[in-house]
Amino acid sequence: MGAGGILRIAAGTALLAALAACTDMPAPDAQAPQAQPSAMRPPAPKAPVAASERSRALAGHYARVEAGLLRQGLLRTDGGGPDAPYTDTAILRNFERIAFHDEYARDRGLAQSDGRPGGLRKWTGPVRMSVEFGASVPLDQREIDRGMVTGYVARLARVTGHSISVGATADANFNVLFMGEDDRAETVARIRQLVPNINQSSINLFQTLPRSIHCLVVAFSSNNQDHTYRRAIALIRTEHPSLLRKSCVHEELAQGLGLANDSPHARPSIFNDDDEFALLTTHDEELLRLLYSPRLKPGMSYDEARPILVQLIAEQRGGSS
């Protein structure tokens, strides 16, 4: 679903993107995210349990949301086409809005940001993702979700040219949590385990997550390197039907790489609140390639980056306008 953005909250510097009411909140300085001690490794996967009435009701709500969007011709999966052309000028404009702006104010929950641009944010080291499941997720669904993430991560690595992989949970720095309404306590416990110094306001968001938030991602940086990501956590609601579930994975994992905001002008794009596109598009791949060009450094302002972007776009798109 189109609403994207990253919410930056406390514990190092965190940035969180929530789909459908996407969040992008910068955080105050704090300690860097701590490594997991050996005693804090994730517990063994739990056997699936039957969904509660509340979880079933939420699943029914999201099924109706997906069906309604499809009836309107939204949630496209074609990646864009002749009806959605874009130019070099559009790419430059959209990259500026999506990569240099936040949707939400730092450490203020879902409060809107002041709209001022910030520095460029990205990972500089390898991104090692893991896939984890709450007890509410059936075993067959876990295999489907794991395969979906693995395939998408391979695409992200290919598009960006950056080291992005799926591996062992103990070695991960980007944890993808598939959790349902019945897994809230498990979700909070796992987040506390992954980021022991996370602040209470951030925990409160996960504990009281409204149904308007379909999924979210939190990316953390250390306080002395505010624009370089060190850890991320994505939360995907397991009550979603298949396409909404996949759209959450596509947007949150891409935004956890540094494309923090949404723009109503971005098309064809998942970084847009209009829900027209469900899955990463050709336009979005161009944004990711730009972001992970070695010529763009974390912390760069837009004014510093602009001449480099113009050159990169000309090289990437053959100079069309």
Rank of each mutant, 00 (worst) to 15 (best):
G4Q: 06
G4W: 00
I6P: 02
R8A: 11
A10Q: 08
A11I: 00
G12Q: 03
A18C: 13
A18G: 14
L19V: 14
C22I: 08
T23W: 00
D24M: 02
A27N: 02
A27I: 00
D29E: 04
A30H: 04
A30F: 01
P37Y: 05
A39G: 03
P42E: 08
K46I: 11
A47D: 15
E53A: 11
S55M: 13
S55K: 03
R56E: 15
A59T: 08
Y62W: 14
A63L: 10
R64E: 15
R64N: 14
A67H: 09
A67V: 04
L69A: 14
R71I: 01
Q72V: 10
T77R: 05
G81M: 09
P82L: 04
D83C: 12
D83F: 11
A84R: 15
P85Y: 10
T89Y: 02
T89L: 04
T89I: 08
T89A: 14
A90E: 14
N94G: 13
F95H: 09
R97W: 01
R97M: 06
R97K: 12
I98H: 05
I98N: 06
A105E: 05
R108T: 09
L110I: 14
Q112S: 11
P117C: 04
R121Y: 01
K122F: 01
K122P: 00
W123K: 11
W123P: 02
W123R: 12
G125W: 03
S130A: 15
S130V: 08
E132H: 13
S136D: 15
V137F: 06
P138V: 15
L139A: 15
L139I: 13
D140K: 11
R142Y: 07
D145F: 00
R146Y: 03
M148D: 12
V149I: 11
T150Y: 00
R158T: 15
S163V: 12
I164F: 10
T169D: 15
A170K: 13
A172E: 05
A172K: 07
N173M: 08
N173H: 13
M179I: 10
E181W: 03
E181R: 02
D183N: 11
R184Q: 08
E186V: 12
V188R: 05
Q193Y: 03
F206W: 09
F206P: 02
F206R: 06
P210S: 15
I213H: 01
H214C: 09
C215G: 12
L216T: 10
V218M: 09
V218A: 11
F220P: 06
A232H: 04
A234N: 03
I236L: 05
I236V: 13
R237P: 07
R237E: 14
P241D: 07
L243V: 01
L244T: 00
R245P: 01
H250S: 08
A254I: 05
A254S: 15
Q255V: 01
G256L: 02
L259E: 03
N261Y: 03
S263L: 05
P268C: 12
I270Q: 09
D275P: 07
D275S: 15
T281L: 03
H283Q: 11
H283P: 05
L287Y: 07
L287S: 07
L290A: 11
Y292F: 15
K297L: 05
M300R: 13
M300L: 07
Y302A: 07
E304C: 01
L309T: 06
Q311F: 01
L312F: 07
L312E: 14
E315Y: 11
R317H: 04
G318P: 07
G319R: 14
S320P: 07
S320D: 12
S321Y: 13
